[in-house]
């Protein structure tokens, strides 16, 4: 049976595990992509996928259907990732930088296309972008990921972050400005 998201959420709320399974199977890859962009680590992203669906399951009664299920789920995922980032940040504050051997995903990933030129270019961009992204605040990073990679509207970002519309908009601005400022010198030389 092909469930719509709304119907599956309603059925899952009434204890139908097959309906919840349908939602998990449908949304896992999207949640993983978002978690990976937010956390920058494959294992963390996997954990966040589990955590997101666990929280969603417990909070199913709070899903009122006013927004799409995917949007609601992504909001939970962002909050899970923010919790993780905050806890990591507090642990990291006493350390000078990344631990030895620890690398950000953007330091390591390559473009999906087999074309070697594109592969090299993507790695180059990733290498430049990684340290700049790390310098963003949690709010700027979240706003940027949601706007740039997830294509969320500012109003949706504001709801997710629990801030006013203008604050969300300025977080995106600040993120782009900071990234540009950080990358401009290397970017110009690389072009």
């Amino acid at each position: 049976m092909e469930w719509s998201d709304q119907a599956a959420a309603e059925a899952a709320r009434n204890g139908n595990s097959l309906a919840f399974r349908a939602l998990v199977e449908r949304h896992s890859r999207g949640v993983f992509r978002l978690a990976f962009r937010m956390c920058g680590d494959e294992q963390d992203a996997e954990d966040m996928v589990q955590e997101t669906f666990l929280r969603a399951y417990r909070q199913l009664r709070q899903f009122d259907g006013r927004s799409a299920f995917g949007t609601w789920l992504h909001r939970i995922c962002v909050n899970c990732c923010l919790d993780l980032l905050r806890s990591k940040k507090s642990r990291r504050e006493s350390k000078p930088a990344l631990e030895e051997g620890e690398r950000h995903w953007l330091d390591t990933v390559a473009a999906p296309a087999p074309n070697p030129e594109r592969l090299a270019e993507s790695s180059q961009i990733a290498a430049m972008l990684a340290p700049a992204l790390r310098e963003l605040s949690d709010m700027e990073r979240t706003a940027f990921v949601l706007r740039h990679y997830e294509g969320c509207e500012i109003a949706e970002i504001a709801r997710t972050l629990g801030v006013q519309h203008n604050a969300a908009k300025h977080s995106v601005f600040r993120a782009v400005q900071k990234l540009r400022r950080a990358l401009e010198p290397v970017w110009g030389a690389a072009r």
Binding site: R21, V24, E25, F32, F36, L54, H148
Partner: peptide, 30 residues
């Protein structure tokens, strides 16, 4: 040119069966 290039940076792909794998780990915890 700069912002479009950021989108080129890839995320590790997950197979079509990824949702099923997630469910198999998740189900016992629910």
């Amino acid at each position: 040119s700069m912002l479009d290039a950021f989108r080129e940076v890839a995320v590790p792909e997950r197979a079509e069966s990824y949702g099923t794998e997630v469910w198999s780990q998740l189900a016992p915890r629910l």
